[in-house]
């Protein structure tokens, strides 16, 4: 198996899918000759041409709205929003149109589009190049939301997203793009949507995370292992549809759950996990469902001291695990 970075895995996935299916078109800002601001689409323009790798105007609503229309007429669009922070001009098209197309037409029309967007902080991106926007979209029936944490999953989940018949938001953590390497099989494989993965077995506390936080959760589990605490880590991989079985089975085993996300805490994705556990695993709980999440300020500040203050870290997660384990 080849060793790839996270972004190489994404690029490879896009190229293989475009070779497999001529109806796939990539569109977004700077995705053409430049290959995207992070180079996720580097080389695609040269291989597939300007018809299938389309540089768009700086109009996010158009990127998604045109994708919806193109999908209705036989194209399978993979749209790139340059930063998740800039997805909001397209919010109406995603939420009012893409998510509702199938339901409102009683199944007559679908919306097989994939929307890729780099998200996340810890990269000196400040308020508008650091946001975690998943909770806005996990709330919406009709959408699927995917956040891979490894190169293997990035490639395999992106294939599943592109092949899916429904709109999928595919969020890629910027800090993972070049910092994470991993084994990626040559050629075709797909990781199914809606399946979480237990990435570390443990018995006392379940840590639920995704994206960059899935890595930090593993580091934190290692830190507390030195104190004799056995933590299990779940990488959700797909936030919607949620793999309830894996989540519930783990928490019923450990009796304690720590939910970790980078997005701010209030109304964040972790609140839904906590509510599901309270409703469906209450009898198994030996401690309060706890969240370690970003602070409730309107964005990640730029200065390194402020950014460090904002970001969830392995140490912060480890502190949360210790408190919960001692409960």
């Amino acid at each position: 198996m080849a060793v790839r970075t996270y972004i190489e895995a994404i690029r490879e996935s896009l190229a293989e899918e475009m070779r497999r299916d001529a109806s796939i078109v990539v569109l977004g800002e700077d995705v053409g000759r430049k290959g995207g601001v992070f180079l996720a689409t580097d080389g695609l323009h040269a291989e597939f041409g300007a018809d299938r790798v389309v540089d768009t105007p700086l109009t996010e609503s158009m990127i998604v709205g045109v994708s919806i229309g193109a999908a209705a007429n036989g194209i399978r669009p993979v749209a790139e929003i340059q930063f998740a922070d800039f997805i909001f001009p397209a919010f109406n098209q995603i939420v009012s149109e893409a998510a509702r197309m199938r339901y409102r037409s009683n199944g007559a029309f679908g919306c097989p589009i994939t929307i890729r967007a780099p998200y996340g902080g810890g990269v000196h991106g400040a308020l508008y190049h650091s946001q975690s926007v998943e909770a806005f979209f996990t709330h919406v029936p009709g959408l699927k939301v995917v956040i891979p944490s490894t190169p293997y999953d990035a490639k395999g989940l992106l294939k599943s997203a592109i092949r899916d018949e429904d709109p999928v938001l595919f969020f890629e953590h910027k800090k993972l793009y070049r910092s994470v390497r991993g084994e990626v099989p040559e050629g075709d494989y797909a990781v199914p949507l809606g399946r979480a993965q237990v990435t570390r077995d443990g018995s006392q506390v379940t840590i639920v995370a995704y994206g960059l936080m899935a890595h930090y959760a593993l580091e934190a589990a290692e830190l507390v292992a030195a104190d004799g605490i056995s933590a299990e880590v779940i990488d959700l991989r797909t936030l919607r549809p949620l793999d309830r079985e894996t989540l519930l089975a783990s928490v019923r085993k450990t009796g304690k759950c720590l939910i970790v996300h980078e997005d701010n805490k209030f109304g964040g994705y972790g609140a839904e996990i906590a509510a599901i556990l309270a409703e469906e695993a209450f009898d198994y709980l030996d401690g309060p469902i706890t969240r370690v999440a970003g602070p409730d300020v309107p964005g990640v500040p730029y200065n390194h001291a402020l950014e460090d203050w904002f970001m969830v870290s392995p140490d912060k997660i480890a502190a949360g695990i210790r408190t919960l384990a001692a409960y």
Binding site: S23, V25, D51, R52, S61, M62, V64, G65, V66, S67, I68, G69, A70, A71, A72, N73, G74, I75, N92, Q93, S96, E97
Partner: peptide, 18 residues
């Protein structure tokens, strides 16, 4: 919102030469 959908349909029609 539908203006963008019509434009997208036309975009697909042009790409697919329909």
């Amino acid at each position: 919102t539908q203006v963008l959908h019509a434009v997208g349909i036309a975009f697909a029609a042009k790409l697919r030469r329909t």
